[in-house]
Structures are given as C-alpha cells and as structure tokens.
Amino acid sequence: MTTLRQKHRRETARTLAFLSPWLIGVSVFFLYPLVSTVYFSFMKYDGFTPPTWTGLKNWQYVFTDYPFFWPALRNTLWLVVVMVTLRVLFGLGIGLLITKVKTGAGFFRTAFYLPYLAPPVAATMAFAFLLNPGTGPVNNILGSIGLPQPGWFNDPSWSKPALTMLALWGIGDLMVIFMASLLDVPQEQYEAASLDGAGAWQRFRFVTLPNISPIVLFAVVTGVIQTMQYYTQPLVAGKVASGVIGGAGQQFEPGYPEKSTLTLPQLVYHLGFQRFDTGGASVIALVLFALAMVFTVFLMRSMTERSAA
C-alpha cells in the first residue's frame, strides 16, 4: 500500500515531467537572458573585444545623451493615447455594426476580418504604396476631389496617423472579440430597457457598455502591451518611404521621417545590432521590460477581478 508521502512524491514527479519543457524554456530563454541583460547593461561590449565594466555609463547615456530615447518614448505615448484609443473605439464600432447587419453578414465579417491576417511586412509595404505622396492612389483620389494631399509616411506630422490607419485596417482581432461579447449580452436586459422607454443610445450606455466593459479594458491593456512591442510596421514604413532599404548606399535614418516613427524595440536593434553597443541596447531592453511588466500586472489584476466577479 502506498503511503501518502509516496503518492505526493509521485505526483510531484509527474507534475515536473509535464512541466519540464516549460521549465527549461523559461530558464534558458527568459531568466538567463534577463539576468544577462542586466549584466550587460553595466558593461561595455562591442562583440569583438571582451566586455569591460563601465558602471552606470550606459544608463546615463541612454537617459541623458541618446538622442533617440525620448523621441521613441514620446512616440510610444502618442501611439498609446491615439492609436490604442482609436483601435478600441473602431473595433467596438465595427463589432456593433457586424451584429446589426442582416444581409450579407458572412461577406462583411470576412471583409472586415481579412486585413488582420495580412503579414505585417506585406501590409505595411502595401500602405506605403497606397499612401505614397507622389503617385499613390489615396492622394490621387484626394487630389481629384480637391482635398489636401498629406505627405503621409514622408511627413513627420502625418507618419503616425498613417501608421494608425494601418492599425485600424487590421482591426479584425478586436472586431471578433467585441462581436462575441456583444452577442453574449443577455437579450432580456435590452427588452427590459426598451420597456422602460430607453432609446438606442441609452440602451448602449446602460446595458451594452456595463456588460462589455471587461472586454474593453482587456482590449485597452493588450493594446498598450502591443504598442510596447510595435516594431515591424514603423520600421518597414520608414525604410520604404525613405527609399533606403536593402542594399542601397545611404544609411537609413532611424525613425524616418525625423524620428517620428521610432519605438523602443527599434532602439534595441539600433544600438545592439547597428552600433555594436551591447550595453546601451541592454539598458533599453530593461526599460522596455519594466514598462511591459507594469502593464502586464495591470492586465493580470483586471483578469483576476473579472474571474472573481
């Protein structure tokens, strides 16, 4: 007869066996590099000569002297405020719309969802073409109806709005999430509200919104976290718009035009893989880590509250 302790030991062994891929993965691909990043953030290392201790020099350089750091942070803030907000509003709007559509619902759902699947490099390149100031179809159409034709990805004040349009185009994920949550709202509550004489807006305000507010929060927080990771689209857009891409002879101006599309992940690449500055790149990586963790904790809080509710 097996004792309780033996059973416990067997269960522990079994759990460990099931978890083993993750245990290795998280140690080698998360904990080790994280510790190593902290280590490198205090070192001078160019990839050739052995690392040497430099104390807080890298930290000081990034925060006070690195000309791309604050612009990248400001851009991230802009994207969080404008892009995330618009994405949530637009996603909710499209989700609402799709629940109301009676005719051709299948077609509309597919049409709204499909752009989400376009690979980011391909989608960005397509938008760089569509929004090409000189010859692109969008300015072409704007011009023919007498509207101003912005410089889009070539104009520092229009490049982030252009990226926002690209992000709104790929709204499919949010649309589906909102659609599902809208369909989950109990029908009786609408009926009750209608009997009380509530109009469409009031029904939305007092029935729909309270029911889907956890999803809205989820969309906002994941949107913010995605913004922390925002890399491919601004980089490719800048490269294509500046014409400096691939093997061309000029150097690419990071964040083209005029730093307006810089984001923190791009700085890791710029310092670590273009300037050989492992230390500086590690500092940026840790800043990025701290920011991502703040919002992740926020997300986990909101999720536990939801499951408790």
Binding site: I24, V28, P50, P51
Partner: peptide, 13 residues
C-alpha cells in the same frame, strides 16, 4: 547544450 549553458558570453577574437 541549451539546458546546460548559462554562463555569460565573452567573445574573444
């Protein structure tokens, strides 16, 4: 090697 290696990387050229 992944499972075994967790030392700091130093490049010597």
């Amino acid at each position: 090697a992944v499972a075994l290696l967790a030392t700091a990387c130093t490049g010597t050229s």
